[in-house]
Design a protein around this nucleic acid. Structure first.
Lengths: 194, 194
DNA sequence: GAGCATACCTACTCGTGCGTAGGGTTACGC
DNA sequence: GCGTAACCCTACGCACGAGTAGGTATGCTC
């Protein structure tokens, strides 16, 4: 039942999707949708919630906290891209639609910031292991960038149905980890004097 | 006049924004908006177009093609984040709203892919200078990731009004260039045997 | 000052889609 | 066979907002 909603929302976008179409696609009538899942917003939030939870679980399940940082990153990425590859509709709802729609931006932002936190925590952990430390803001920003890059590749993956999630994850590692590893070893880039 | 539209669109989103509000905000009445700028879609496209062109020009003006790759990247990023910092509304319209709205996704995707192309071209150029070459797909994907990371930081910047665009650009360089430089030197990451 | 055009506004029509009221149908108890 | 209760549908009310029709004021020509 939620499946139908996710499908329609992903095809049409939140606003353009009509409850009539969702009901029809689910094989029932509109009042039933209202009876079971409430208003359109509640329905969308329910979709968001389910897809988000599934995704988080997929990632958390793959990236155990006791692994070394690079391995954790790799497993997490692989799980993430695997999820997106398998649930392209879900990803479209979660990321493309919710963004910009005021009522859901908050919901999405929460999930995203949890991700950012996890990544930042990972970096911080790895840094401390190397005996280094950098400001919390910097960590957050780097984590933000990594999450953004990953989302961007997820989009790319969603638009290329033949692409291999595993390979995409490898590419992401090449971008992310090589840079992050440099940072961990104390190599930084500074703006030229000008 | 477009300014009012950009402001309202950025606050409300495309659908939630009413022509009445835009007209009121611009200090004129609705029929005038229609007389000067046509339908709501045309109006939005006009906003998109103006902000997009401004942004592209800001970047292109800063990153001359004859500079070395790292310098070009740095100047381009600095110009980009400077632009976002100065036109937060514009960025919100351009990126947050247009995404997901079917009719404008194309417009946005075009702009984005032009950016990706430029970045990929830059990487390719730098690679050839090093006597290396990698598959075009890989280049595209790496460029995609970099663009995604940059957009993500732009969002961060838009949500943190006190943040310094210059500093944000520096952070982006640290994530992007350190990783890219590794790639350019032939260092790559490979998945563990498992 | 009469005729005319330009610039603008108020007040409407009309389509669309969310949410619901009220009616039909099947299954079960008596 | 008849009451009734659970379930689901068709068909509507209603609000909101895009786009427009027709009227009013200001300035310009002769």
């Amino acid at each position: 039942m939620l499946d139908a909603a996710v499908k329609v929302f992903s095809r049409r976008g939140f606003h353009a999707a009509s409850m009539d179409e969702i009901a029809e696609d689910a094989g029932i009538s509109k009042p039933m949708v209202y009876a079971y899942l409430g208003t359109k917003e509640e329905l969308f939030v329910a979709c968001l919630h389910r897809e988000g939870t599934r995704m988080m679980q997929a990632i958390a399940g793959a990236a155990a906290p006791d692994l070394p940082a690079d391995d954790r990153l790799w497993r997490g990425l692989r799980a993430f891209f695997g999820f997106v590859g398998a649930h392209r509709d879900g990803w479209a709802v979660l990321y493309r639609q919710a963004r910009g729609e005021q009522p859901f931006a908050r919901e999405l932002a929460t999930m995203r910031s949890r991700l950012v936190e996890v990544v930042a925590g990972m970096l911080d952990h790895a840094l401390r292991a190397e005996g280094r430390e950098i400001a919390a803001v910097d960590l957050e920003v780097v984590a933000y960038a990594l999450v953004g890059a990953t989302e961007s590749l997820a989009d790319w993956l969603a638009d290329h149905p033949d692409a291999d999630p595993e390979k995409t994850a490898t590419r992401m590692m090449n971008v992310a980890w090589l840079g992050a590893a440099q940072l961990l070893h104390g190599v930084t880039w500074r703006p030229p004097a000008d």
